[in-house]
Each structure stands twice: as structure tokens, then as C-alpha cells.
């Protein structure tokens, strides 16, 4: 399976290069991106760091060094695994951050002071688990949306552009899916499909699809009547050409903002799924869920909860801040209100 994740990294990198080159050619995108960078530099850097960590944790391979250890033999190890070398951890249980003395279970600690944020119940390093969680979070929020957006655009734009039967059908499907409270639909889908990364992502995609589709449809309906679309049609541009050249570029900014907002919603709702026992393996939600009973221990175990929740909070906050700034920059209506 590890080559799938490697291939996705390559695909994402290629996609990012293509998007950057496309955006650099267009004045609208170049100027808005520059303005966003000026206004929200810190938030962008924070998100970039998370993406970088997630990429480090997505590239994996098997080599002789992995074969040497019984715990890792035959298993691909990611770059994060190679940096932290979890197979060398010798703790069997909790160890406090930077602990110098044994305090739990009476066993002397094998690596006192070696763990920046201590270890969890099974002796796993908290920093390591937190960093691994970044990949899961971006998988839930980012990759799911990236797969779903093209499908939603296909349905939404064709419904808005051609109207009639297609619109009726897409609108009905949207109404039905939107009628089911999203969390309940999500739970039902996961219960039915089974637990697992792919299943959870499919479930998130099915529920998140409607949101993008509705915006694409609404905007296309408006743009269809615009003068420049009428002009293009009068010049004999084909329907597909109009959609590609005139409609898609004009709804792209809304899709990006919706993407950012749905990203935070997805990452936050995964914590609820984790609490219900149907979340993703290794997510921050799972760490928080496991840590919630540790607060009542004496001495109090706070580092598991702290590691996961600070990582989660920082990512969600940064994306929220960026989404907010993007909306300010791109949507002139809110700009007039806020300034």
C-alpha cells in the first residue's frame, strides 16, 4: 500500500506546480495571492509546516535498515518514522515530558529526558504521534475535498448551465442529501461502509459534496446570464468552452473559500467520530479521546491531550484565519462592510 501514498505525494506536487503556474499567469490570482501573503503570513507558514510534515510522513520505503529490526522488517517506514525511530523506544507506559526520574509503575525509564512531550499509556512518544496526526488530518480535510470538488463541480456546473432536467435531478439529489443532518449521515455511512481510512473518506466525501455542488450551481446560474457569457456564445464558443474559459475561473475563488471552511469543519468533526469509535486510526481526535480519562489520574497526565489538541487547534485556527482573509480580499461586499 505504501506506493499509493507515495504516488499521491507525486500527484499532489505536480498539481501544486500546475496550479502555481496557472495562477502566476493570471493577474487576479497573482495580486490576490500576494495580498493574502502580506496580510496573513504567519497563518500561511503554519499551514505550510503542517503540509510539509504530512508529506514527510507520506513518503515511505523499505530498505535494509528497516529489515534489520524485527519490529519494522517488511514494513515501509516514512521519513518521520526514520527521524523518530519508534522501534527503539523502550518505555512500556507513561513517561512525563523530559522526565529524569521514574514515576509511573516503578520501572526505571529507559530514556529519561528523551521525550519532549512524554509518552502515552503504551510508551509511544507523544510528539511522534502528534506529528503523525498531521497526515491524517490533512487526509480527512484536504484529500477528501480535493477528490470531491471535481465531482461536485461537474454536477453543479452542468446543473446550473444546462438547467431543466439535469438541474431538477441534481437539485433533488442535493436536497435529499442536505436534508439528512450531516453528522447523522456521516455516522450512518461509516456504520454501513465499515471503519477504515478509505471508508471514512468516502463517507466524508458523500456528505461534503453537496456543499460545493450547491455553490457551483448557484454561481453558474448567475454567470449564465452574464454579458460576457452571452458575448462568448454570440462569438460561437461551444458550451464546454464557455464553461472552461468563463464559468470555472469565475467560481474558483468561491470554491477555494468553501474548501478552506469545509476543511476545518471536517477536521473538527473527525474528533466527534473518534469519540464515537468510528474515527481514523492515528488521528488527533483519537488521541484526545484516549486522553480524556487520563486527566483524573494522579499525577495528572496532561501531555497526550495537550499535544493533540494544540496541534489540532493551531491547524484549524490557521486555516480559519486564511479563509477569513481570503473572503475579505476576494468578496468586495464583505470588504465594504468590514472596512
Amino acid at each position: 500500500m505504501h506506493w499509493v501514498s507515495n504516488a499521491i505525494v507525486v500527484l499532489l506536487a505536480a498539481g501544486a506546480v500546475w496550479v502555481a503556474r496557472y495562477a502566476a499567469r493570471d493577474r487576479f490570482w497573482r495580486e490576490n495571492a500576494a495580498q493574502l501573503w502580506r496580510r496573513r503570513r504567519l497563518a500561511i507558514v503554519v499551514v505550510a509546516v503542517y503540509v510539509f510534515i504530512a508529506l514527510l510522513d507520506s513518503i515511505s520505503w523499505i530498505d535494509p535498515a528497516s529489515e534489520a529490526n524485527a519490529l519494522t522488517s517488511g514494513r515501509p517506514r516514512t521519513i518521520i518514522d526514520r527521524i523518530f525511530r519508534p522501534e527503539t523506544f523502550k518505555e512500556a507506559s507513561y513517561s512525563a515530558p523530559l522526565a529524569r526520574v521514574a514515576f509511573y509503575g516503578g520501572q526505571p525509564l529507559a530514556h529519561p529526558g528523551a521525550h519532549l512531550l512524554g509518552t502515552d499509556l503504551l510508551g509511544r512518544d507523544v510528539v511522534y504521534r502528534t506529528l503523525k496526526g498531521a497526515r491524517v488530518a490533512l487526509l480527512i480535510g484536504g484529500l477528501t475535498s480535493l477528490v470531491v470538488i471535481p465531482i461536485a463541480l461537474l454536477f453543479g456546473v452542468s446543473a446550473g448551465y444546462w438547467g431543466r432536467r439535469i438541474d431538477d435531478a441534481v437539485f433533488f439529489a442535493m436536497t435529499v442529501l442536505a436534508s439528512v443532518p450531516s453528522l447523522l449521515l456521516l455516522i450512518a455511512l461509516i456504520m454501513v461502509l465499515g471503519k477504515g481510512t478509505v471508508q471514512v473518506c468516502v463517507a466524508l466525501g458523500v456528505t461534503g459534496w453537496v456543499h460545493f455542488c450547491r455553490i457551483a450551481r448557484g454561481e453558474t446560474l448567475k454567470l449564465r446570464e452574464a454579458d460576457f457569457v452571452a458575448a462568448a456564445r454570440a462569438l460561437g464558443v461551444s458550451d464546454v468552452g464557455i464553461i472552461r474559459r468563463h464559468i470555472l475561473p469565475n467560481i474558483a475563488h468561491l470554491i477555494i473559500i468553501t474548501f478552506a471552511l469545509s476543511f476545518t469543519a471536517l477536521v473538527l468533526s473527525e474528533t466527534i467520530l473518534s469519540y464515537l469509535g468510528i474515527g481514523l486510526e492515528g488521528s488527533w481526535g483519537q488521541m484526545i479521546d484516549q486522553a480524556r480519562n487520563e486527566l483524573s489520574r494522579t499525577p495528572i497526565i496532561w501531555w497526550n491531550l495537550a499535544g493533540a489538541s494544540i496541534a489540532l487547534f493551531t491547524l484549524v485556527l490557521a486555516v480559519n484565519v486564511i479563509a477569513d482573509a481570503m473572503r475579505d480580499i476576494i468578496d468586495p461586499r464583505t470588504r465594504r462592510e468590514e472596512r
Binding site: 476545518t264 473538527l268 474528533t271 466527534i272 486527566l295 487547534f313
Partner: peptide, 18 residues
Amino acid sequence: CMLTMSVASLLYIIAGQY
């Protein structure tokens, strides 16, 4: 508001109970 929106609801409950 932005800060409070970025916290998972699970954490509010855990923090409130604790």
C-alpha cells in the same frame, strides 16, 4: 470568536468537566 471556533467541541466538554 475565531479562537473559540477553532477548538473541537470534544475539548470544550473535557475542559468543562475537568
